[in-house]
């Protein structure tokens, strides 16, 4: 980013009549004439003291911008994760239950499409049809405009969920497709085990055999896989937020990049990295709780 041409004073003031001499003076005053390495060391020093700096493009401190954007992204990503995970596992269970019959083939085709089709395309299609043509969901934003701020809390909550539906739904679909494909394969591997035969010999329904015996033995790797897939999910969120105008971390980062707002970009990337690492540790812990035998197996 440092090597690309331009800086805050070139882009933010583009087309304005600020003379080059004034720009040069500002660059000097804010230290933009220093070499990048030196500026990074100064930024890291400030960071060590808890200073994230000032986001010039927003005319606000970086910390304030992030504090506002982060919860929105967390809501988006976690709703997408939970919904996508549940949908994916349900799809895989249905596929294995009706293996090699039409539900398996249909869901297999859908999940393959879900993995293969880029999410921005899904997002644009959902926006066009569900948003613009049929007007079921709003196409962008966090909530309704106008007097919406005066609505009672529960109405605002519903309004928020209504606006969340499309971006979270599109993200959830891509999660669901991946989860379903891996979960189906893991389930099929477990279905050959002897204890599945035992479960059937007990007179259990096939659905109970799947949910009570196959799934607990097949879900561990899928949770672990989710931990690995989280960074790409965060990456996907950048696109989705941009498309649906969801003012979270992704959109903040995107705008900051265009505006060459170095402190904001650095802080956003740093925060995303920390979240990815923490989330990774969390999924490992969840996998350990869901599949407790792993460590104590002989």
């Amino acid at each position: 980013m440092q090597f690309a041409p331009g800086d805050p004073f070139a882009t933010a003031l583009e087309g304005s009549d600020v003379p080059p001499s004034v720009r040069a003076e500002w660059r000097e005053r804010f230290g933009f004439d220093q070499p990048p390495g030196e500026r990074f060391v100064r930024w890291a020093g400030a960071l060590a003291q808890g200073q994230l700096g000032y986001a010039a493009s927003r005319h606000r401190p970086v910390a304030e911008v992030l504090r506002e954007a982060l919860p929105r992204t967390l809501v988006l990503v976690s709703v997408a994760l939970i919904v996508g995970f549940a949908l994916g596992i349900a799809a895989a269970l249905g596929q294995v239950r009706y293996r090699r019959r039409w539900p398996d083939r249909l869901l297999g085709a859908i999940t393959l499409a879900g993995v293969a089709v880029p999410e921005f395309l899904v997002a644009l299609l959902a926006m066009t049809w569900l948003g613009a043509r049929w007007r079921i969901f709003p196409v962008a934003g966090l909530g309704s405009l106008g007097d919406a701020a005066a609505w009672p809390l529960w109405e605002r909550a519903i309004d928020f969920l209504w606006h969340l539906a499309l971006p979270a739904g599109v993200l959830a679909l891509t999660v669901a497709a991946r989860v379903a494909r891996h979960q189906r394969a893991a389930l099929l591997a477990v279905m050959h085990e002897d204890f599945i035969r035992t479960a059937r010999a007990k007179g259990l329904r096939e659905w109970d055999v799947l949910v009570r015996h196959a799934l607990p033995n097949a879900i561990g790797p899928v949770i672990a896989l989710l931990g690995l897939a989280l960074p790409s999910l965060v990456g996907g969120a950048v696109l989705i937020e941009r498309i649906f105008g969801w003012p979270g971390m992704g959109l903040t980062l995107f705008d900051a990049l265009l505006a060459r707002d170095y402190p904001l970009v650095l802080a956003a990337v740093l925060l995303a990295t920390i979240i990815a690492v923490v989330a990774r540790a969390l999924t490992d812990a969840v996998a350990e709780v869901v599949a407790p035998r792993r460590a104590s197996a002989q």
Binding site: D194, R197, T198, A201, G203, H213, N217, A291
Partner: peptide
């Protein structure tokens, strides 16, 4: 048939380790 299994006609399998669900 399912309702007969384990109620009227039962089976014990050969390999007791793999015949039991390891997570239950």
């Amino acid at each position: 048939r399912r309702s007969l299994r384990a109620r009227r006609i039962s089976i014990v399998f050969q390999e007791p380790l793999t015949a039991l669900n390891p997570r239950q």
